[in-house]
Design a binder for these strands. Structure first.
Length: 292
DNA sequence: TCCTCTCCTTGCTT
DNA sequence: AAAGCAAGGAGAG
């Protein structure tokens, strides 16, 4: 265990409970010893304490892992500035103010794409279970104290896996989508390179994947490909919009995307996170309650 | 081009 | 306990 100090203004903007378990990432587990997850080839256990973070990791040392964790948590984002930029009305203000430490994550694009292919008409506990099943079946084991976790398998490890085998892991109708995604990424799609592409360039590439429509493309871009203007609209965000922004509630998906970019700006994706989390955890609040 | 409807799996919740 | 619901997408009409 190694302690890494963090500046108070950074620390006050990190809420691991809302960040790690809010439906952007699916392989963190909350234990009595801390938050346990897998980053690349390493298992991590992290605890936020006064003044910084305690980090355990294996097989790599915490000194090597910490910069990766910092990148994963997007500590390079100036969250205060971003929150100020998207804080354009009393409704989003209330959502932001409820979760000042809720952050976007910078995830691995492949794992993120697979997770959101799994997410179609599913729910967070089940997505977690499926992702863990894929890792358990095809990843590499890493022993960490008394527990064993698994790396998430890259496409090269899944290239010979059948649709039937994926179905047996509980993927349902999404199994054939994963078979296609494995082939496409293995053969020609360089997901990591899409980090350098623009939002407009990346969108049509992701839409070529069977089982990936606008929403899942937006999730992949926002959570792993550095497209912070991406504004995924799922049932919860749609609910939040229809209740809190009735003036645009009848817009199509594409029109809502454009509206969100115009309205919230280039960090619209952060606004989406706050709206999603607020609507999901705090429930319906009538727009009149925002009168300030 | 764009909307609407149905189907696709499964497990957790009420 | 049967029905509803869950970070949707594809295809038909």
């Amino acid at each position: 265990m190694v302690f890494f100090p963090l500046a108070p203004e950074v620390l006050s903007k990190i809420d691991l409970d809302s960040t790690l378990y809010s439906g952007q990432s699916f392989r963190w587990r909350s234990t009595e010893q801390g938050h346990c997850g897998v980053l690349g080839d390493d298992v991590l256990r992290i605890n936020l304490i006064g003044g910084g973070v305690d980090l355990q990791s294996a097989p790599s040392d915490p000194e090597y892992v910490f910069p990766r964790l910092a990148s994963y948590l997007r500590l390079d984002d100036d969250l205060t500035a971003i929150q100020n930029e998207i804080d354009v009305d009393s409704r989003i203000h209330w959502a932001i103010d409820s979760y000042r430490g809720l952050r976007l994550l910078r995830q691995d694009p492949w794992e993120c794409l697979v997770a959101f292919i799994c997410s179609a008409t599913s729910n967070i506990p089940r997505i977690s279970r499926t992702m863990e099943a894929i890792a358990g079946a095809y990843g590499s084991p890493i022993d960490f104290g008394s527990e064993r976790r698994y790396t998430f398998p890259g496409p090269e490890r899944l290239i010979d896996v059948s649709e039937r085998a994926f179905r047996e892991l509980g993927m349902g109708f999404r199994a054939r989508y994963l078979v296609s995604a494995v082939e496409m990424v293995h053969q020609k799609f360089d997901l990591m390179r899409m980090r350098e592409y623009s939002y407009e360039e990346t969108y049509p590439l992701l839409l070529q994947f069977p089982g990936v429509g606008e929403k899942i493309a937006d999730c992949t871009m926002l959570f792993s490909l550095e497209k912070l203007r991406a504004f995924p609209i799922d049932r919860w965000v749609h609910r939040a919009i229809s209740e809190w922004y009735p003036e645009v509630s009848s817009f199509s998906y594409r029109d809502l995307q454009n509206w969100a970019f115009d309205y919230f700006g280039s960090y619209a994706g952060y606004a989406q996170m706050y709206l999603f989390h607020a609507r999901r955890t705090l429930g319906h609040i009538n727009a009149s309650a925002f009168a300030k």
